[in-house]
């Protein structure tokens, strides 16, 4: 359930990036101040472990489909909130780059959805009070399942909110929620069982290990949880505010470009800010001043054709298609040309 770049708007993407960076900075600072040296290689290697374990799959009983380990919760249990959040962020960075899971702008969302909730909400508020440092397998099992389910539900719900706020999907809120939450309930139960199994196995095989790992990590985050939320709040307000200001001085791209193309709906003369500057630059450097090569009398017709869809007319779309074909041909030609020269040239 990695959030994807293609569904995001820049405002939502950057806001969640800001949030994740804020939490990451906070976690690094908190860790750095009382870090046991040996945690650095341990964190890195455990990140690689999450990957490696995700490559091993198992068959989910009764369904025949295969599942794998998610990671956030098990890391939180083993490393504590701060280190676990950073490791999870690293895992997601590597996934975004090497597997192109999600994408780089959606990384902020994914770190938030898959890192923040398990590490900073569910672990300190559900798992830790419930299990503490206890070893009762039954309790570990129930707490793990509840925790993983809670974390995944929060994550899935955030995906819904982020997607809807970005406005790229037409799915209505209710349908989207009904689509996402039940799937993640099922995934959560399976993953919770697996998490509990691994924790219990490690407890059984090497009981001293988890104790020494818990001892080497900093205190829980409860004390300054408010601080995180405040920092995040400020980030949201700042970036959200900045972006909405930017957006409001800069009319929505689609309409703006279509208005330019069809020559309708002139922008108000009293323009200010970035839009005016951009428009100025554009007018000065335009290589196709009017974008309109058709005779002007065809304009009234377009209004009738698309009454429920203002702005797009068939003339525009024909130009778009013709242009699109040419652009793609040019791009392909450039690519082929470079390839040809690289093969034949002395560089090889």
């Amino acid at each position: 359930m990695h959030m994807a770049d293609a569904l995001l708007s820049p405002a939502v993407g950057t806001t969640l990036w800001a949030g994740s960076v804020a939490v990451g900075g906070y976690a690094s600072k908190k860790l750095g101040s009382r870090l046991d040296d040996r945690l650095i290689p341990l964190m890195g290697v455990l990140g690689a472990f999450i990957f490696a374990s995700q490559m091993i799959n198992f068959t989910i009983p009764g369904t025949g489909s295969s599942g794998h380990l998610g990671g956030g919760m098990i890391l939180a249990i083993l490393l504590g909130s701060h280190a676990a959040f950073l490791v999870m962020a690293s895992v997601l960075i590597v996934q975004a780059l090497f597997f192109a899971d999600g994408g780089l702008l959606a990384l902020g969302c994914n770190v938030w959805n898959l890192g923040f909730y398990p590490c900073f909400l569910v672990y300190p508020l559900i798992y830790k009070p419930w299990v503490g440092d206890g070893k009762n397998p039954g309790r570990i099992l129930v707490a793990s399942v509840v925790s993983v389910v809670a974390a995944l539900q929060l994550g899935a719900f955030s995906v819904v909110l982020e997607t809807l706020a970005s406005g790229k999907s037409e799915l209505p809120f209710n349908a989207f929620v009904l689509l996402m939450q039940p799937i993640h309930l099922a995934i959560g139960i399976v993953e919770g069982v697996v998490t509990a199994g691994v924790i219990a196995y490690v407890h059984g095989a090497r009981p001293e290990l988890i104790e020494s790992m818990t001892a080497s990590r900093p205190l829980g985050p409860r004390v300054s949880f408010r601080k995180i939320m405040i920092t995040f709040g400020i980030c949201v307000i700042v970036t959200g505010g900045f972006l909405s200001w930017f957006a409001s001085t800069h009319p929505d791209g689609l309409e703006w470009s279509i208005e330019k193309v069809t020559g309708k709906g002139e922008l108000p003369e009293a323009e200010e800010g970035i839009a005016a500057v951009l428009k100025g630059i554009q007018q000065k450097t335009a290589f196709l001043p009017d974008y309109n090569f058709r005779p002007p009398e065809s304009e009234p017709k377009t209004k009738e054709v698309s009454s429920d869809w203002p702005g797009i007319d068939s003339g525009t779309s024909t130009a778009g298609i013709v242009g699109g074909v040419i652009v793609l041909a040019m791009v392909g030609f450039i690519g082929a040309g470079i390839r040809f020269f690289r093969r034949g040239g002395p560089a090889r």
């Binding site: 290589f287 196709l288 974008y291 058709r294 778009g320 013709v322 242009g323 699109g324 040419i326």
Partner: peptide, 10 residues
């Protein structure tokens, strides 16, 4: 900021 494709098309 420029409708390059459409420009080329037109």
């Amino acid at each position: 900021f420029y409708p390059v494709t459409e420009g080329i098309g037109r």
